[in-house]
Amino acid sequence: MKTDNAVISENICIAADVFRMKLKTSIADEIKCGQFVNVSVPGYFLRRPISCAEASDGEMTLIYKIVGAGTKQMSLMKEGETVSLFGPLGNGFPMLDEDILLAGGGIGVPPLLYTARLYREKGREVTVVLGFNRKEDVILEDEFEALGCQVYTAVMDGTYGISGTVSDGLDACGCSDRTILACGPLPMLKAVSERFDKGYVSLEARMACGMGACMGCVVKDHDGSSYRVCSDGPVFEIGKVVL
């Protein structure tokens, strides 16, 4: 955990309102799959928590969506500019000694790419179920395929792949005996949690400090005890916290 002035080596649009930013940073050599960094955007007070989509050899990839003025500003940043990062933050996905099922919805998909690569490098079978609203939102399908993953893509409006949600994609993939690692919008994580006993979900939250000090991003378990999404999570075992 440290701050680093990273140099942008790429910042391009890869789908509707979705950008891929590559950064030269020493944090790339420390960050684990499912962890995130807090990104400082010039002109905005709080940092943006963004998950790591890939990291190797001193370069880290962040894939983010424009959801407000801050991420809009981030999308306008140019190659060669520096951006202050704070990280690595959070616990990350577990590296289990078994074949794995990954499920991602929308902008929850990126952290699964890094996760998929690490599982493939351990020689594990990786099945990936992706869900998007529209065809123009689809990201990273080719990248998962290039890693040798089995990929099932579902699109809500029926214009591409499997018609429907991540749940429909999970029906089609037929690996429901595997441990699932999921990241995406809350309704999707709820559906995944109802369907799977074994697995982990990665949550999103509005954060301030990003390291567990401010109690801004808490979730609760079934007994009412609090957990910080930023530092106890963002990855929680299915059933651990109330979604």
């Binding site: 007070f45 709080l46 509005r206």
Partner: peptide
């Protein structure tokens, strides 16, 4: 146990908690 979330919002040159 504190308040329900969201507990944090950004503002111009600051934040609400």
């Amino acid at each position: 146990f504190g308040n329900p979330v969201p507990r944090i919002a950004e503002t111009p040159a600051g934040m609400l908690n």
